[in-house]
Design a protein around this nucleic acid. Sequence first.
DNA 1: GGTGAAAGAATGGAAGC
DNA 2: GCTTCCATTCTTTCACC
Lengths: 153, 153
Amino acid sequence: MKNKLDQVDFDILSILTQDAQTPYTEVAKKLIISPGTVHARMRKMRDMGLVTGATLNLDYAVMGWKFTVFLGIYLTENTRYKQVIQHLMQVKEVVKVHHVTGKYDVFIKLHTKDSIHYREIYQNSILTIKGIKGVESFISVEQNLTRHIDFSI
Amino acid sequence: MKNKLDQVDFDILSILTQDAQTPYTEVAKKLIISPGTVHARMRKMRDMGLVTGATLNLDYAVMGWKFTVFLGIYLTENTRYKQVIQHLMQVKEVVKVHHVTGKYDVFIKLHTKDSIHYREIYQNSILTIKGIKGVESFISVEQNLTRHIDFSI
DNA sequence: GGTGAAAGAATGGAAGC
DNA sequence: GCTTCCATTCTTTCACC
């Protein structure tokens, strides 16, 4: 087992990133290889750490969570970022936290039910965190694309 | 089949969002319900449009794609956003595109191999798009969190 | 490193409660 | 609307190529 991927691996990833629940037998049939090969390739890619797991895609709007907001956060001192991130992770509406360089220090994504819920979280759970100097918000009007990198040769 | 979720549904989601490939029989065992119930609940949640699919989690860094960058984009005219988004979607390094309100008009996420690759994409594939007035970039130093909303009562 | 088959496990309906 | 049952399909390993 060498750690270099070929077109077959990319094809497997391409099918499974579109639907992670596709049975391996079906993947095998599409690519005209044996089910055992799909298993071996997937195990290789898991062992490499390339495939770290699988998750469901959820449409939060169906649950009445219609607000998606990005926040660019400035810190009072950059060294404080670990504590700030710890606090941000406690807020259940926050789903992504990135430590970034550039205009902001921390960049997060959060979901709320509506603008009232958003304001409440923003004022009571975000702005109250010690070490946050300022915040700029971007409300997502529409998500137009979400996909994976296609590594194909 | 009513369209209201209960704690059992949330528990199923909680397990499957952590690992979408968990067999339903195992989900059933953990929750001490029958496999048929897991199936019925999942079908209900798919039919509702809450569960839209499943995807693999990939660690791009393992493939040598070590750069994750967010771009906040200003447009020359806000009405042009559909065309700009069309062009952004053609760039294979771009994995997410959001139309937003606030300081920027469009917000995207992209992956590249390194800073050289990034600069090339930035200058040749992003800045050349007609309708883009300006761009601010945020390089992700570290991703600290990625998860789903927990709807539990 | 791939194949294909075989034993065991999971799936996804149907019928009854 | 949940459960049990069961025929079908999938998983996973392994001897062989």
